[in-house]
């Protein structure tokens, strides 16, 4: 082994192997680009008012302008941002703690690991329904609260679904996204973190100093990337707020869906325009996540 362990080496190795792989993937890539790119192009056309079926053939930015000049749009934008930022921050914070605990438990408690990964496999919709049964005014928690005498009637139970603060939506997202972020963090801790922590200990860093100056900076790129992905998902997801959200203000994805499926065909371009604006935010988050990941890999942090 005459090779220094540097990220540079790993990069060149990946680089040389990359070309043939891209060739192999070409057919699949072509289909994806065609379907996705084509769909996007059609979407843009429709958002610009090109709807031959409804007799609209003139391209116009009016739909975008109408969407953006509707005060309700900003209310929707606000609630969407609120829900995704709060659930992402909560999930990220809990995940850091969970990853540290799981790393400490190491291989000793495999079942813990397994239980932890379960939410990954459950669709959002199912979790949303479960949350509904659990938190609804006549739901399980309300009944239990009555049964143990905490409240007199289920009606006294605080409103946690279709509520002002979107508690139900946020809980669903937090529960669902914690395992995703935690597992990404856990991989970093196992691959890079433990060795660096040992180095830190011999360099006289206290437990808090190791967390503050080694663990957090090591986790940061993965935490940032995973959080951005979760943010992008929650910002663009439709089913959970549709089920657990209030009817006004709606989140952006619900609004886009409502407009798009409106019987009034004229509302359709506005639905798509909203969808494209959502896509813009989501794409920006994903691009930043990618940049974070790449920068970390260049520094030799395994993500």
């Amino acid at each position: 082994m005459d090779r220094a362990e540097t990220g540079v080496d790993a990069r060149t190795r990946r680089g040389t192997g990359g070309m043939p792989l891209a060739m192999l993937l070409l057919p699949a890539l072509a289909v994806t680009v065609l379907l996705f790119g084509g769909g996007l192009a059609l979407g843009v056309l429709q958002a610009l008012g090109y709807l031959p079926g409804a007799g609209l053939t003139r391209l116009t930015g009016a739909h975008f302008i109408r969407v953006l000049s509707d005060p309700d749009f900003f209310l929707s934008f606000g609630i969407t941002l609120y829900v995704s930022v709060v659930s992402t921050l909560l999930a990220a914070g809990i995940s850091v703690i969970a990853a540290l605990v799981l790393d400490r438990l190491a291989g000793q408690y495999r079942p813990v690991h397994f239980i932890f990964q379960l939410p990954l496999t459950v669709p959002h919709l199912v979790i949303a329904v479960a949350v509904m049964f659990l938190l609804a005014p006549a739901g399980l928690l309300a009944r239990i609260a009555v049964a143990v005498g905490l409240i007199q009637t289920p009606a006294e139970f605080p409103l946690l679904v279709n509520d002002r603060w979107s508690v139900g939506i946020i809980l669903t997202y937090v529960w669902k996204e914690i395992p995703f972020i935690t597992l990404m963090l856990l991989a970093v801790l196992r691959n890079t973190g433990r060795d660096l922590i040992d180095v830190g200990r011999t360099l006289k860093a206290s437990a808090w100093q190791r967390f503050r100056h080694i663990t957090l900076p090591t986790l940061f790129p993965a935490l940032g990337a995973a959080s951005l992905i979760v943010f992008a998902y929650t910002f663009g997801a439709f089913e959970v707020p549709y089920l657990l959200g209030r009817t006004h203000p709606m989140t952006l994805p619900v609004r886009a869906y409502k407009d798009y499926s409106d019987i009034d065909l004229m509302a359709r371009p506005e639905g798509i325009a909203t969808g494209l604006l959502i896509a813009l935010v989501v794409a920006a988050a994903v691009v930043i996540a990618q940049a974070l990941t790449r920068a970390a890999r260049r520094r030799g942090i395994v993500i």
């Binding site: 220094a4 362990e5 990220g7 890079t192 060795d195 660096l196 040992d198 180095v199 080694i214 900076p217 090591t218 940061f220 970390a296 520094r299 030799g300 942090i301």
Partner: peptide, 8 residues
Amino acid sequence: QKPLLFPF
């Protein structure tokens, strides 16, 4: 054995 420098 490995340098294990802090990458950040």
